[in-house]
Simulated scan of single mutants.
Amino acid sequence: MNNSEAQAGAQSAVLQLSQVGKSYNHGLPTQVDVLNGIDLTVKPGEIVALVAPSGAGKSTLLHTAGLLDTPDRGTVRIAGQDLTGKSERRRTAVRRQDVGFVYQFHHLLAEFTALENIVLPQLANGISQAKAEARAQDLLARVGLKDRAGHRPAAMSGGEQQRVAFCRALANGPRLLLADEPTGNLDPGTADQVFAALMELVAATGMAALIATHNLELAQRMDRVVRLEGGQLHAGM
C-alpha cells in the first residue's frame, strides 16, 4: 500500500490503530507487552469480532481504542482525528460524542427507568429533554422494548436490560461502538436475541463496531474476525 492509499484508508476509517503498544510491569521483574504493534482499521457500517484467550488483553485493546487508556506507543485515530497525546479534556469530548461502550454487565442506573437511562447521557451532551426522550423512544422501539420504557432495570429480564444498555450506548449517535462480551452474561437463546438486536442497530445507524466475544458462533456472523494472541492481532479465529 502506498502513502496515498494509506491516507485514504485512514480518512475513511472510523477507528484506526497503528502500531499500538501497551506494556505493564505489575511489580514483575520483566515487562509484559499486552499489546505489541497492533494495526486495526474498522470502517463505517463494519462489525468486527475480537476473539482472544482469557487474559490476552482484549479489554486493554478496547479501552485503548475507546480513549479510556493511552498507548505507550503508536497512534489511535477516531474519525480521522489523531488523538495520541491529546489532553484528557479533548479525549473525553471525543469519547462522549463519538464512542459508545457496552459491557458484559449492563450497568444501568437502578433508580431510573429504561427511558431515563437513555435520556441522561443525552442531557449531559447538551440535548434538550424533548429531543432526548424522542431519541430514547425510537431506540427502544428498534429493539422491541417500546412498552418497557417506564420500567426500572429490576423489573426487566437480563436480555431486556442489555438491550437498554445498547440503546444507552447509541443515545448520542456515536460513530464507533465498542462492546466487551455484551452477551457473556446471558443464556444462549437470550444472547442470540440480544445480538440480533445489536446487529440491527449497527446496520440502521451505519456506525463501526468492534465487539469482543468468546462466542465463536456469534463471531462468525460478523463481517470479519480478528484474534488477539501474544500481543498481536491475526485475521480469523
Rank of each mutant, 00 (worst) to 15 (best):
L109S: 03
F105Q: 09
Q97S: 07
R142H: 13
L109C: 03
Y103D: 08
L123S: 13
A132E: 14
A110N: 15
D82L: 10
Y103Q: 09
K131C: 05
L115G: 04
Q81G: 01
S157L: 12
A141V: 11
V94M: 12
S87R: 04
G85H: 06
E111Y: 02
A154P: 01
S128N: 13
A136Q: 04
A130C: 09
L123A: 14
L139M: 10
T92C: 07
A134I: 00
L109Q: 07
H106I: 04
A136I: 02
E88Q: 05
Q122H: 03
K86E: 12
V143P: 05
G100V: 08
V102L: 08
R91M: 10
V143D: 13
H106V: 03
L145W: 03
E133K: 13
G85Y: 04
Q122R: 11
V99M: 08
T92A: 15
L115I: 06
R152M: 14
L108D: 09
S128W: 06
S157R: 12
L83Q: 01
H151Q: 15
G150W: 05
V119K: 03
I127E: 14
L145M: 11
A141Q: 15
R96F: 00
S128I: 10
F112Y: 08
D98E: 14
Q97G: 00
T113R: 02
S128A: 14
I127V: 14
A130N: 14
F101G: 04
E116N: 11
R96H: 08
A136M: 05
R135M: 07
A124R: 10
F101D: 11
A134V: 00
F105V: 06
A155R: 00
H151C: 13
E111D: 15
A141D: 15
N117A: 08
K146I: 03
Y103M: 11
R135L: 06
L145S: 07
L123K: 04
F105S: 07
A154I: 07
V94D: 10
A130E: 15
A114F: 02
R148I: 04
K131Y: 01
L120K: 07
A136D: 05
N125P: 05
I118W: 00
L83W: 00
H151V: 06
G85E: 09
V94I: 15
S157K: 11
L140H: 05
D82V: 10
G144S: 01
E88K: 00
H106A: 11
K86V: 13
P121I: 02
A114V: 06
H107V: 12
V119Q: 12
